[in-house]
Design a protein around this nucleic acid. Structure first.
Length: 524
RNA sequence: GCGCCUGUAGCUCAAACGGAUAGAGCGGCGGGCUUCGAACCCGCAGGCUGGGGGUUCAAUUCCCUCCAGGCGCGCCA
């Protein structure tokens, strides 16, 4: 990484300043810039441009060949060409920004009362990519799926399935109003009916397992696998909710009212106190969830990340407050809200409700749109951004999806390298880096060198989409380079040097797309 | 009513921690293959960053207010 080297050199000169090193906008001199002169200006009561001119000559950094001062006071640094190429040549594209972090990322966790619908697809894409990204930068990150297999909705599922079985036997089904009316229960009911009678008390377990397996298969088609599937029934059987309740009671942050036990969540910034045990002595979702989080922490994780939909934001304060009250640092847990996706079809919004049975399943979407396209689409947006997904657009115009733009760049490179081999270029030979000097070549090299910086930024922000944008930029720069520079020519030494450069680009494409969970074919 | 998110080009979106002339893709118009992959490249058009006020050397970014949209606000999960 070049950026931290600049920052360190500046910090050594001015240890008291909060120095920012940024990239330079297009069209300006230099590659990286600092705001240092602005910071000093207010303290010294002088103009930023004067200070910039004063400090610029004092800065000596091996990676930097030239320093420019730009109005109104930026100090810009140009990377030394030889340093840059050597840096790329020696960089193995693997690094550690923090190897002490053991991270558990819980995401999707859809209720096993029906097929996964496309609302969960965004969380699946982001969560899976986040696991890959964090592992790539040196964290020890793992994926987790929480199965809500107890409680009222599980009961309601069993009741609804029982009615569908009656229907198969020629009777009129009577699914309760708040039951599950979707036709997707019919294959399950047929499956059960074909096996003869399953006892009523086994119906719930069987149905839950059916959908858990269904979720696992669907997500696997989407390229998403979970290392751990935790079950609420297991958490309960191991008495984690009771443990959580005991811990909370010990802190004095609970109270009784109307026969129920409350958690004093308002002490932790919540807008109301939250029920832990209802007046009819059932544990609430919050208490079970707190128990579940004890279970996570007991597994030696020091960073828990939960991806939630925007409809869950109301429960964040209660959960974090509860974890804090139980004596764990609040920073242990990070909640990421993945904003709402609006699906549109034939120009109008698609409404989805599992209870009424109006759903568009993830399986149906994958049947029609390649998973690479779907994932890329979701990973082009920041999590905090609402997102419109036009299904017709995805179905009809997949060729225009930018994912192909990136994949094409990689395939093009592989084709050029093959061509080079056919022309007798020895790609095992040491490249003569000094031959790389065209502006388009240097620009490509500079962008390759930024890869690990982008990964660091994306990992610290928990935002895989930053990788997506980087890859689109790199593809654009490569395609332009291709237009201007002939890689394979009569000059074997030059050809070898240029192949080295595009090989590095290909490695970045491959690894970057892998972080996004998107394939990277050699031919298209 | 309260809380969270959002408002940037015709459309979909960028612009990390406040920085330089607010950038891409799609769509529109005009160019470019005898040459390593045209799923590509180049150029043009298109913006009071929802309105107004404030803080700052500097605001798309922070604060206030108004307007518009989305999602929440159970002893449900």
């Amino acid at each position: 990484m070049i950026r931290p080297k600049i920052k360190k050199s500046l910090s050594d000169l001015f240890p008291d300043e909060k120095i920012v090193v940024d990239t330079v906008p297009r069209g300006k001199q230099g590659d990286y810039s600092t705001n240092l002169a602005f910071l000093l200006a207010s303290k010294r009561n002088d103009s930023p441009i004067n200070i910039a001119n004063e400090i610029a000559p004092k800065i000596k950094i091996p990676a930097i060949s030239r320093i420019y001062v730009e109005k109104p006071g930026f100090v810009n640094f140009e990377i030394d060409r030889n340093y840059l190429l050597k840096h790329i040549y020696e960089n193995e594209l693997s690094f550690n920004i923090d190897n002490s972090r053991r991270v558990l990322i819980e995401f999707v966790s859809a209720n096993p009362t029906g097929p996964i619908n496309i609302v969960s697809a965004r969380a699946a894409a982001v969560g899976d990519s986040l696991v890959r990204l964090l592992n790539k930068v040196g964290y020890d990150a793992h994926s987790e799926y929480y199965v809500n297999d107890t409680g009222k909705q599980a009961e309601m599922l069993a009741i609804s399935v029982a009615q569908r079985i009656r229907e198969i036997h020629g009777e009129t089904p009577e699914i309760p109003e708040n039951g599950y009316h979707g036709k997707y229960l019919i294959p399950l009911a047929e499956d059960i009916a074909a096996q003869g009678d399953i006892k009523a008390d086994k119906l719930k377990e069987y149905s839950i397992n059916y959908f858990v397996e269904n979720h696992r298969k669907t997500l696997s088609r989407f390229g998403v696998t979970f290392e751990c599937w935790s079950r609420e029934s297991d958490i309960r059987a191991k008495q984690y909710p009771e443990t959580a309740l005991k811990k909370l009671k010990n802190t004095g942050k609970t109270f009784e009212q109307d026969g129920a036990i409350f958690f004093r969540a308002t002490d932790f910034g919540d807008n109301r106190d939250r029920v832990l045990i209802t007046s009819d002595q059932r544990s609430t979702y919050l208490l079970n969830d707190l128990g579940y989080h004890i279970h996570k922490i007991e597994r030696k994780y020091n960073q828990l990340i939960n991806l939630l939909g925007p409809d869950h934001h109301g429960q964040i304060k209660g959960l974090i407050g509860g974890i804090e009250a139980m004596g764990y640092p609040a920073e242990f847990i990070k909640i990421i809200i993945i904003q709402h996706v609006s699906f549109k079809k034939e120009g109008k919004a698609v409404s989805m409700s599992k209870r009424t049975g109006e759903i568009f399943t993830l399986d149906e979407l994958i049947d029609q749109v390649p998973k690479d396209v779907i994932r890329f689409f979701f990973l082009m947006r920041s999590c905090s951004q609402h997102l419109d997904f036009d299904i017709d657009l995805a179905l009809k115009q997949t060729d225009e999806n930018p994912v192909y733009y990136v994949q094409y760049a990689h395939a093009r490179i592989m084709s050029i390298i093959k061509h080079g081999l056919d022309q007798g270029i020895d790609i095992s030979a040491e490249p003569e880096l000094g031959l790389i000097e065209q502006p388009e070549e240097i620009n490509l090299a500079k962008h390759i060198a930024r890869y690990d910086e982008v990964l660091e930024d994306a990992a610290r922000a928990f935002e895989p989409f930053m990788v997506t944008y980087y890859l689109l930029d790199l593809a654009r720069i490569f395609h332009y380079f291709y237009q201007k520079v002939k890689v394979v020519s009569e000059d074997k030494g030059l050809s070898r040097a240029r192949i080295f450069l595009i090989q590095k680009a290909a490695q970045v494409f491959k690894q970057g797309l892998d972080i996004l969970g998107i394939s990277c074919p050699d031919k298209m």
